[in-house]
Structure formats: C-alpha cells, structure tokens
Design a protein around this nucleic acid. Sequence first.
DNA 1: AAACCGGGGGT
DNA 2: ACCCCAGGTTT
Length: 348
Amino acid sequence: MELSDALLGWYDTHARALPWRVPPDESRVGMLPDPYHIWLSEVMLQQTTVTAVVKYFHAFTTRWPTVHDLAAAKDAEVMGQWAGLGYYARARNLLKCARMVVADHGGVFPETRDGLLSLPGIGPYTAAAIAAIAYGHSETVVDGNIERVMARLYDVHTPLPVAKPELTALAAILTPQDRAGDYAQAVMDLGATICTPKSPACGLCPWSSACKARVNGTAADLPKRAPKTRKPTRYGIAYIARRNDGAWLLERRPDKGLLGGMLGWPGAEWGAKPIAQPPLNADWQTLPAEVRHTFTHFHLRLTVQMATVADETPDTGQFLPADQFSPDDLPTVMRKAYDLAKDRLIAD
DNA sequence: AAACCGGGGGT
DNA sequence: ACCCCAGGTTT
C-alpha cells in the first residue's frame, strides 16, 4: 500500500477536531471547509501553536463572520483583537489581504497556489495549504512538522534550513492526487501528536515500518539545525502617564518594525543602555519592579516610570480616554508594564 | 542568504 | 536556559 493511503487511513480515525476543520466523517466525504476559515487559521498558525490559535480564531470569526466583514473593520479593531498573538505584521497583512480579496476578487479567495501567493501575508506554505485544504488541489504543503517527519522518514541529516529543498522534494513525491488537503493535515497531525520534536511515539506511528530513522535509531536527533546565535539584552524605560480624568498616555507604534502598528507606552528606543525620554514634564516615579520580556532575537529589561499629570500636551503619543482604553489591546510586553502600574495604583 | 519579527508551553 | 512551533517579509 502507498504510504499516503496508510496515513489517510490513520487520519480517518485519529484526526484532531479543530474549529476550522471539516471532520472526515463518512457523511461528509468530499466536503470542503470555508476558505475564509482556512486562510484565517493558517495565518494565525504561522509560528504559533494550535492551543493559542483556537481562542483567537473563535473571537475573529464571531466578530467578523465573513471576509467582507473583516475587510470593513477598522485597523485599530483588528490590531486590538490580535493583541497577544504576536508577529503583528501578520495582522496588518491579514487586513490588507481581506481588503484585496473583496476589492479585486469579488470576496472569493483565489483557488490556485500562484493566485494565493500574490496576496499579502500568504507565502509558499499558506498558499499550498489553502489550495489543498480549502479547494482540494494536489499541492505540496511543507511546514515545520512536515520537515521533521520527512527528515526522519528518509533519515536526512542535512541541517535546516539548507535541507529545506531536499525535504520539500521528498514531500512532493508522497503527495497524493486525491485528498491532498486531508493528507497535508494528516502529516501535520502526525508531527504534532506522534512524530514530536522530542521522544517521538514511534510505536503508535502508521509509518513506523517505513521510517529509516527509526531503523537507524536517529529519529529523536532529527532534523538537524544550524547552530543558533544567543540573544543580547536590551534596556529601556516605559512612561505610563495618567491624566486627572483617568485618560492614559499611549502611542501608536509605526507600521514597520518591532510591534508595528500596536499601541504602547511612550519611551526612547531600546538599546544597550536605557535612555531617558519622558513624553512630558512630570513628577515621574520609578516602580520597584521591572518588566522582563524575551522577543525573537533579544531579551528586554524595561524600567517602568509613572506619573499623574494635569491636562498638558505631550511631546509624543496622545491621551486615550479611560472608556476607550482596554489593556487587552496591548501587546504582551506593554501589558506587563500596565499590570505593574495597575498594582501600584491599587496599592495607593 | 540572512535578518527581522512574539509569545507561550514543554523540557 | 533552551527548545519548538501549521512562516512571511524585508534587506
């Protein structure tokens, strides 16, 4: 039997139930899921775990049930709803993409890999995933799970990312003509639940008898990766000003760069040493505790300073009335600073 | 090709 | 502390 058939048989009984997925029930054979749901979930799943995505997927589809609804949303609403999920360029591209689908494609996502690739936020992985899962096309989907499964199945020792083309070619050979979407999801489920990064459960794997790494005893050591550089530490100051009427002084960060497009507390750029740059003159109080946060490529230590101020015009940022501010709209590092300040307000 | 871009959970 | 994750964009 073909390897793909063995895996599809396993998927029919072991597929995880996910909100955007049509279960492989006998009564629903051939049913395809909503392309809007697949696109939204796949963008959210970029470098993000299923557990984290489920809550956000539900919130987005409840608030914006169709791509038309999302396309009509305001930028700040979408950025706020995305807060906490990370990689905020995804949220900006999500909204751009929704508006392009409505304006240029009549509200229908393109069906082909190339058509999907032309949209913002959709790269090789997501284009193949949408074409296969939402439209049933035989496209080869390669994500981190599938790289790991292929490296083990064929005992490939070439380190990533150099090994990527080789692993993609191997994955393409296995991709079936029929049920390519189920097949892609099956390999990803296999990687997520059985062929895990550490301690793979080879005894439960439908591909165990074919797996070369299992025979050679190398499965747990694959895939190989290029060595990583260690993260430097940066320092900064967050200024949290509260006006007498309860308004908070916040700034919208520029679209490009770190935390692009998100709300945050004013302060100088983070660097090797903290730089004082208060947004206005006030009696700033330094909090006894600091915020520690780790980004993709550096650690951050953030000192938090607070002040209560009168109605002044700040040098940077603008006051947001209390009824228009929700801490849920903040990215996590800014939320951590807020939580420290909130504790101080309660203590006083 | 390499750098940039979050956050959380597991180990 | 280090690993990983249903990657894409920019330089």
